[in-house]
Design a protein around this nucleic acid. Sequence first.
DNA 1: TAAGATATTGAAAGATTGTTCAATGGTGGT
DNA 2: ACCACCATTGAACAATCTTTCAATATCTTA
Lengths: 231, 231
Amino acid sequence: MVVMEESVMAQLDGVGAMTESSSAEDLEAAGETADLTSRARIRNAALHQFATRGFAGTPLRAITAEAGVAIGLISHHFGSKEGARDAVEQWIVGLFAAALGLADRESEESVADAGARDAAVARMLGDNPLVIDYLRREVLEQPEDGGLITRLSALTVESVDAMRAAGHASTDRDRVEQVLTVMVRQLGRLVLQPLLHQVAAAFPAGERPTSLPELTVEVRRPEARRDERDS
Amino acid sequence: MVVMEESVMAQLDGVGAMTESSSAEDLEAAGETADLTSRARIRNAALHQFATRGFAGTPLRAITAEAGVAIGLISHHFGSKEGARDAVEQWIVGLFAAALGLADRESEESVADAGARDAAVARMLGDNPLVIDYLRREVLEQPEDGGLITRLSALTVESVDAMRAAGHASTDRDRVEQVLTVMVRQLGRLVLQPLLHQVAAAFPAGERPTSLPELTVEVRRPEARRDERDS
DNA sequence: TAAGATATTGAAAGATTGTTCAATGGTGGT
DNA sequence: ACCACCATTGAACAATCTTTCAATATCTTA
């Protein structure tokens, strides 16, 4: 998993290369897969396969079949299977960066506050549900240095710093703790969601509730301890 | 992933078959791998490999190499790779069942309360950290019917029912919600833990805090809604 | 149009995988 | 000592996987 340096906001890698659509349009839909570059179709298919079957569990032929291209095209565009993974992850990083940047651009002030950022990221994830599935798998892989989570953390650091500078985030708390809070709360719910469904599915259909309860993930300071009890 | 019926507490599958050690001893240490059955060594190695590299990502030869046996032994003992996975998961179910049963046996009353059960499970998981890693991966796999999560859910249902009958759990709340709360709170923290470490690792060593904050996963009723704000 | 660069194909190679199986070793019973 | 039974081995096999590569198609540019 080689890390590409350069600016994170760099070109979104072929998405909408033929049609001159803006990056905002690419985040939505994804319905018409026809007029996309072969490179983009391969990347989309790879995201789909990796998200649902895992990296090791997806043969290259499954990607090329879904993308509708020949097997040799992957190594031509991405060098190797690992290269395809890098491209997928770089694209995801771009999505997050674009969502955060969009939040700033829509804000009346130059820097959006936490609520606007959360909303922008949530909107982006809603448009790309496969990204959620991919992140879910990525979270539990061994913390490969320079992996996707690391890069998204760096993005969140920038975001928190910008909010601090704009007075939207308190500066008395630990910077690390702020970033941890944002990331864990955002990703934690997404990662844990399938657990909720799996447990509920273990009940007979009759007893199963119509609407599942909501998950909340909190981060508490180490010293703040309190015993708790339930059920 | 074929599900074995029978009693969950059934034989723990060869652990300590040669030495007459009690099952409690087997849960700890795992340091001396020498005097275990080949079958048990293969199962342990499979747990280790599946937990760290994933099911699809582990070749059978990686398991046999760690176990110190020949390649043919796996199919002889477990039939297939899938069979090895079944054995691993059945062993994990046995661990949970033993921990819960142990909690009841140690309790002054015939049925232990929630705190004692949580403690027993936590102790068991502390002795078998690989089980945590395995569960973490299992959570996000597609909810194959009869999978590990389903079986652990069934175990939790029994546990909650026993506590209800003993008056240790309220009977006015939804039974499904009680089970969901127990499982999500217990497993949620374990699943999310590496995310915490990965995010913290994204910071320069100097800024990284010495002790990481604590995670809390809560389950809220669908109707109870409240807006929140942070950072 | 001509020519050069790039995209795309699909067969082939080479490595790795899960499974099978005949052979060997060991253990206990009669 | 013999025999039946189970554990264990490792080579062989067939399938599948990733990568390579020469050939062909398509696009770009002058």
